[in-house]
């Protein structure tokens, strides 16, 4: 049977709270306000996009949640406290160790917990299956295309069955066709394992296609301006991209973004 965490996703509104950001502010160098007054409740099963232009603090918010930096004000509370291994992360670059094979790269989170490879071999294999790389165990990153490397990176993020996966513009550097394929596959994976995702992007269409919650952010200072729920049902497919509902949602989000930027809608 499957060993990866297998959670069912409840409908919006009936989900249990996973973490809470309370009045978060981050000021760099004493003067540069990267993020101001951010409040956010994240629930188990959410696919939440942080959407906004450069400098709106979306990456800062992600780094704060990841614990890579401490907030200047406010706090982040995890339900039941935060444990080691609660997080999986995918960066904009695949961020693989070039000297290690695909399987060794995916094994990394376990290795850093002190677990031997044999004990988790099947979980590494399952994660690679899930991202469609069952035949790539012994390949080295340099042999792989950008899209495949990104799949390895995703497998590594979800191999431990984390409570939350953070994705920081993971597909921004890929070509449009690869990007759409990965978007589809990401949703299929979510259907299978029921992971919770915070997804940073500057693409309206990507955020509408993927998420059920979109948090629109604005720059100078970085702040949340609006939250929009996308109630289109999952599974979403290639056809959903051309549906009227999709276009309507994209319009709403675009307007919110334009408003946030201070432009006429």
């Amino acid at each position: 049977m499957t060993e990866l965490a297998h959670r069912s996703i409840r409908p919006l509104g009936s989900r249990r709270k996973l973490l809470e950001m309370q009045g978060i502010a981050k000021v760099f160098n004493g003067t540069v306000t990267a993020l101001q007054g951010m409040n956010l409740d994240l629930n188990e099963g959410d696919f939440l996009s942080l959407l906004g232009p450069s400098g709106c603090g979306k990456s800062t918010a992600l780094r704060l949640i990841a614990g890579l930096m401490q907030p200047t004000q406010g706090r982040i509370l995890w339900s039941g406290g935060q444990q080691k291994g609660d997080l999986g992360v995918v960066f904009q670059e695949p961020t693989l160790m070039p000297w290690a094979t695909v399987a060794q790269n995916v094994y990394l989170p376990f290795r850093l917990r002190g677990q031997g490879y044999d004990a988790v071999r099947s979980r590494v294999a399952e994660a690679l299956d899930l991202v469609g790389l069952a035949n790539f165990h012994d390949a080295y990153p340099r042999e792989l295309s950008g899209g495949i490397k990104m799949r390895v990176s995703i497998a590594r993020a979800l191999v431990t069955g984390p409570r939350l996966i953070l994705m920081d513009e993971p597909f921004a550097a890929l070509d449009e066709i690869t990007r759409q394929k990965l978007n589809n596959d990401l949703l299929a994976m979510r259907e299978k394992i029921g992971c919770t995702v915070i997804f940073v992007t500057h693409s309206v269409f990507e955020s509408v296609f993927l998420s059920d919650r979109i948090v629109v952010m604005a720059p100078r200072p970085g702040r949340v301006v609006q939250e929009i729920q996308v109630d289109a049902p999952y599974p979403r497919t290639m056809e959903s991209r051309t549906s009227a509902a999709y276009a309507a949602h994209a319009q709403v989000v675009s307007d919110a973004l334009a408003q946030a930027m201070g432009e006429p809608a």
Partner: peptide, 26 residues
């Protein structure tokens, strides 16, 4: 070392020895 890999090791709570052996030396 790649700064993203450093961040990744931090997120996974790597010790100094692990960081040295698995990231810096390679």
């Amino acid at each position: 070392t790649d700064h993203n890999l450093r961040d990744l090791f931090s997120i996974y709570g790597a010790s100094r020895v692990q960081r040295l052996l698995f990231l810096q030396l390679p």
